[in-house]
Design a protein around this nucleic acid. Structure first.
Lengths: 206, 206
DNA sequence: ACCTGAACACCGTTCAAGT
DNA sequence: ACCTGAACACCGTTCAAGT
């Protein structure tokens, strides 16, 4: 039932009940209205005071982690399984599509995931890093097989997945899938013929 | 000085002064804090009441149109000029990069541009359509030259530009440029060898 | 014709006071 | 140990009243 990191052990009974109600309402509200939905309204719907919400989840990210942490770790595990796919590139593609579908569960989630992977203080940081690492392994295998350009990085893959999810939210889901497809095709070695020079990633400016 | 669609003709002198002050403050605030910056604060900085801002610009989009309309039409004109580039694909790439740089002037602008191109009631709709049409012409030329896959559409290009700009804002500008590059390489005919099947764009669901 | 500023209905976040 | 609800500092948008 609980989809994320477990709450502190041995909560008082009423605290546990409030915790669960908040999670349930947040999941419904985020699914319907996006990950930016009012925390105040979520507390209201759960029948608790706003201070209670902040007591359990000090930030919006903490709430999202409780909701999605397990799902993200499952996504990373799926990536590990796909390392045995017959074609390394197909495995990469299958996983990238699953990752994009995951980003789409709550509208507006992509921005949070992009920031969390670079922000160590984010409650979602660990989960995002696990997803990034899973992508890196799939990428490395496809690279070794010569199916993917040698200069494609895990952050490239991570950014593509989230950006395509974003585009799908802005216009239509198929548009997002098309963007993901073009990007993945751009990763391929065959695209290296006459390929454009690739801007180099400098370490984060600040 | 005025960077967009001209204000209604023959404004009263004080009205004209307020109009200009609002534009100036908005440009500075959006550049520094992004396109979602508080309109209330902009009015305050301009030294006018919030009602005055709404009197001149009934929506945030109207304000953005006044700030960026000319710039977007100039971008479309640049696209027309690039139709004479020696290599059709190079012309496309040069323009796409300019378009992405344009999207980056105010943080968060990409979402507005993505929505406005599909929303006829948006004050930015006409300008976005002009940009889309410019992209379509460059794409058509590259398609005819056999340099680009026949199934790449203008909305694909438009979405790629905005999504790459978004990704650049979330992590770093070079990451955005890398994404644009991968996407454009994915557009190429050479990427069609063993290429992934492309999801079809269904007309907007509603 | 245009401007003002209050009014209304919201936010996120903190924290003293309760039980 | 946890909850409540008010307090504070904000929003966007509308509109009666002024000049």
């Amino acid at each position: 039932m609980n989809a994320g990191t477990p709450p502190p052990r041995r909560m008082r009974a009423d605290a546990h009940r409030n915790y669960q109600r908040l999670l349930t309402e947040a999941a419904a509200a985020f699914a319907e209205h996006g990950a930016d939905f009012s925390l105040e309204a979520i507390a209201r719907r759960a029948g608790v005071a706003n201070g209670t919400l902040y007591g359990h989840f000090p930030t919006r990210r903490a709430l999202l982690e409780a909701l999605m942490g397990d799902r993200m770790r499952a996504l990373a595990a799926t990536g590990a399984e796909l390392l045995t796919a017959r074609s390394p590139f197909d495995g990469l593609v299958t996983w990238a599509r699953a990752a994009m579908a995951h980003t789409t569960i709550y509208r507006g989630l992509g921005a949070t995931l992009m920031q969390a992977v670079e922000d160590e203080s984010s409650e979602l940081h660990a989960a995002c890093k696990a997803v990034l690492a899973a992508g890196e392994k799939l990428l490395a295998r496809a690279r070794t097989a010569g199916e993917v350009r040698p200069d494609v990085t895990a952050p490239d893959l991570y950014a593509l997945i989230n950006a395509a999810a974003w585009a799908g939210e802005q216009s239509s889901p198929p548009q997002g899938e098309r963007l993901l497809t073009f990007g993945l095709n751009g990763f391929r070695t065959s695209a290296t013929d006459q390929a454009l020079p690739l801007p180099k990633l400098t370490p984060a400016p600040k």
